[in-house]
Design a protein around this nucleic acid. Structure first.
Lengths: 149, 149
DNA sequence: TAGAAAGTTTAGCATAGGCTAACTTATATG
DNA sequence: CATATAAGTTAGCCTATGCTAAACTTTCTA
């Protein structure tokens, strides 16, 4: 019975894990877009469709469609044929994402992962890191600023 | 010019990163399914639709549809109304996934992340970890078997 | 062994996220 | 200022991944 119980608990935990992964995935794209828009505005003063498309490596039309969703979600504002802006909520999401991204990337570097790989892996990992894990990573970075080969 | 160049390179690297994340996502589901099927076969001697559905937290019909794809991809074999089996390639993928999963989970534990969180985060992170990063994680685990609070 | 329960499959629908091609608008230049 | 080019938009297509409801097998049990 103890065994049966452990299995049951485990199954519940696992299905919860998969559910969270799926939820992370839907949130992921929004995060990537607002981060990128924020970067573009900081660097160039404005964010344009074409830049986003190029940097994400997707077609222009894909960006247009996605931006419509993000507008509906209240993260972005835009007028036809004009540059794209972030709402307050959009900025907040972008800041959170950037912070997370930086911690994960710094962490991978501190762990001894090569710079290019760290950049690429951080992009995938950042959206699946809980607050606990992020805190643990930040602590590690602060104790091992350079990688400890 | 040096700056322009750095930017260009960066943009290319980033779009490559996003492309890899998208590729990871399509591979992810297949990995989760074969891992789970392997676990079920190990535990129960066979893998059934319902178990997979329950453990993944999705509807039965979703599993059926996905299994069809996996069969087409040569990872799985099945006959109508019968249990599900893995092909050689399916087993290989499952083993690789399990190994990766274990390293990531052990790593998070060694880093000081609580057990439940480690389990959940590992599920999301495992599919976005390159060989380099996995090696760095394994090394860390071997040097810090218990978390260094 | 017949019928109920459990499990599997099919059909049909929805959304997200890709794409290309054709069209419209804005901008830059001769 | 007229027009060529660049940028943004629309339409229509595709696949992956989810769902529910209904139909069909298999298996268990009375």
């Amino acid at each position: 019975m103890a065994l049966g119980n452990r299995k049951g608990t485990n199954a519940k935990l696992r299905s919860a894990a998969f559910k969270r992964v799926r939820a992370d995935h839907s949130a992921e794209l929004a995060g990537d877009y607002v981060e990128m828009i924020a970067d573009l505005i900081d660097d160039h003063g404005e964010a344009r469709c074409t830049d986003i498309a190029m940097r994400l490596g997707v077609a222009n039309a894909t960006v247009v469609k996605t931006l419509k969703r993000l507008t509906d979600q209240g993260l972005v504002t835009q007028e036809p044929y004009r540059a794209i802006f972030l709402t307050g909520e959009g900025w907040k999401l972008a800041e959170d994402g950037k912070r997370k991204h930086q911690i994960v990337e710094q962490f991978l570097l501190a762990l001894g992962v090569p710079a290019d790989t760290a950049k690429i892996d951080a992009e995938g990992i950042e959206h699946h890191v809980s607050a606990d894990t992020l805190k643990a990573m930040a602590k590690f970075v602060s104790r091992n600023p350079f990688h400890s080969r």
